[in-house]
């Protein structure tokens, strides 16, 4: 129970940091003088804009963290099964 709480807190902080970084880059690091300049406007791997990669990454990342929490955070008396 206590270990699961700690795991949940760590995973929450990891995601919060990623989300805050995304919002910060979108707000302060993507435009200069009204023109696209770095941040989400740059091209990532595969020719996709970073905005799309980061956005889909946050969505997929949330599911990956949720799976990790369900798998590693399950108590023995709950049967230890993942969702």
């Amino acid at each position: 129970m206590k270990a699961r709480k700690s795991l949940g807190a760590v995973l929450f902080l990891v995601y919060l940091a990623c989300y805050a970084a995304f919002v910060g880059v979108a707000a302060f690091g993507t435009f200069a003088g009204g023109k696209p300049d770095g941040g989400l406007a740059t091209t990532a791997v595969g020719g996709l804009p970073w905005g799309v990669v980061a956005g889909i990454g946050l969505i997929v990342g949330a599911f990956v963290l949720a799976l990790a929490y369900a798998f590693f955070g399950a108590d023995a008396n709950e049967g230890g099964e993942a969702a």
């Binding site: 949940g8 807190a9 995973l11 929450f12 995601y15 919060l16 989300y19 995304f22 979108a26 905005g51 799309v52 956005g55 946050l58 969505i59 949330a62 963290l65 949720a66 929490y69």
Partner: peptide
């Protein structure tokens, strides 16, 4: 992309719900 920002934010909120 502005519409997709809602998608990202709506989904991210579930992390608070779960953890």
């Amino acid at each position: 992309y502005d519409g997709f920002l809602y998608s990202i934010g709506y989904l991210a909120g579930w992390i608070v719900a779960l953890f």
